[in-house]
Design a protein around this nucleic acid. Sequence first.
DNA 1: CGGGATCCACTTCGATACTG
DNA 2: CAGTATCGAAGTGGATCCCG
Lengths: 118, 118
Amino acid sequence: MKKDIQTINKEIAYIQDTLYVINGKWKLPILIAIYNGVYRFREIQRYVGAITPKVLSNYLKDLEENKLVIRKVFDSSPVLVEYHITEYAKTLEPMMREMVSWGANHRIKISQESKTIN
Amino acid sequence: MKKDIQTINKEIAYIQDTLYVINGKWKLPILIAIYNGVYRFREIQRYVGAITPKVLSNYLKDLEENKLVIRKVFDSSPVLVEYHITEYAKTLEPMMREMVSWGANHRIKISQESKTIN
DNA sequence: CGGGATCCACTTCGATACTG
DNA sequence: CAGTATCGAAGTGGATCCCG
């Protein structure tokens, strides 16, 4: 029972749109960090892992342009910058939840397989 | 109300695992096609879009290695090959559903924004 | 602290042509 | 039909150093 061509084509086009928005190695990890209240540049960097400042900076700009995060600058000294999730980024939550939970199960599956091999 | 560090770190690690499995421009589009009963090489190619045989071939190999699709060869002439979804790949369905539906909504949002601008 | 500048290695993807 | 071979462009991310 194959769906009709148009339906399949639309599903493919939609998921490609989504992939385009969340593309890149670090975009979702960064979003998850900010989502969970990690607001500062260095702090995000520490949470996300082996990301260099340049790359993190590029991702944050991209996320800001796509209106998924907001950059707030406080004129203190030293300068303080915070990144926050937008309302629109919150619509990504169900998808991110599924991805986190699939990843958790996948890790279990992989570890079981390696046990079987040994 | 920031979650504790370990929880956030785990979520990030899990989503990175997931991203690693579904990485690449064409993997999910290919999976969706096969998922919907598009089994043949050329047919998949047509559905997915502007993908060349080489790239499609590489992706299918990758998907096979990761046990997300199974390759069945029929000794007819000409040779017939079919790709099918594995049971494990079906566990990706909730995630893919969310991604398709988010993409659909995103497209609506984008089109509304461009209307506002003009 | 929050980045920018530069350079480079690597992967990915696409175009084109060809094969069993 | 179901791929493989070859080449090259382009993007992506990492290393390192620097700046206000």
